[in-house]
Design a protein around this nucleic acid. Structure first.
Lengths: 129, 129
DNA sequence: ACATTTTATAAGCATTTGCTTATATGTAAA
DNA sequence: TTTACATATAAGCAAATGCTTATAAAATGT
């Protein structure tokens, strides 16, 4: 009849977890940053800019996609301030703002490489394991 | 009348960029990992599991959300293999699989902290600067 | 065996996302 | 100024996302 109860030890653990959490605003802002990395096209843009400063048209060539699509993704990255821009003639050159982006990219790649190494039943995107 | 042309130097730069890119499958898999971090609720789950191993019901308490919602997010994290599970009685305990997750989380938080430091016109999620 | 607890899954839905086409803005060259 | 080029923005749409309610499955207790 009664609701399930926690022991005092379990309650303590939960209190510690709740206390240790980042606040919701910080988590929302972090999620926004990760969202920039969470789309294959945007990730390819980031990957490209990790290699070289590029203008919008360069990116359309590299990514083989339409200019408005590229611009939209760049706008997204601009709003989260992951990229900075400078004008050069008629073009606008995009580059990455700081080294954390490279670190995030590298750690993720390393993670995949290492898990592939130890676990050969690797899954593929969009499919069930 | 002619299409805009690249100089050979510019062509070289683009070839280098294209050559330096991760392949599309790798980028898609990386994007899937980042997608796990790209939702505030999932990020809060990750944040919680960084602090302690927890069962599903614990997470419903910590997150203040419904059990199916939590289970759905956990399924997502399981499919990408960011979490591992073990049974303990009726409960299933979730924990994080390796240290890269902590690194990604920490770097992102550091990035936000440092950009806030140097740039006081901080934006807020879901709003225009 | 039956009821309880815990977790997983399914179906439905409103919202968001990422692209498209069309158009506007801004810069440089003729 | 007029023309061309480079980028940004707007409107619209199909697909994906994250939640809800309802139900199933698995383990434990009576």
């Amino acid at each position: 009849m009664n609701a399930p109860e926690y022991t005092s030890l379990q309650k303590k653990k939960l209190r510690e977890v709740i206390f240790g959490l980042e606040d919701d605003l910080q988590l929302a802002r972090m999620a926004e940053i990760f969202q920039c990395f969470a789309d294959p096209t945007r990730l390819k843009i980031i990957n490209s800019l990790l290699i070289s400063e590029l203008c919008v048209y360069d990116l359309t060539v590299v990514l083989q996609m339409s200019q408005p699509a590229v611009s939209h993704h760049l706008k997204h990255l601009r709003q989260i301030r992951l990229v900075k821009t400078r004008r050069k003639g008629q073009s606008i050159l995009y580059s990455l703002d700081d080294d954390h982006i490279r670190q995030l990219f590298d750690i993720c790649r390393t993670h995949l490489d290492e898990t592939d190494e130890s676990d050969h039943s690797q899954y593929f995107p969009g499919r069930q394991p």
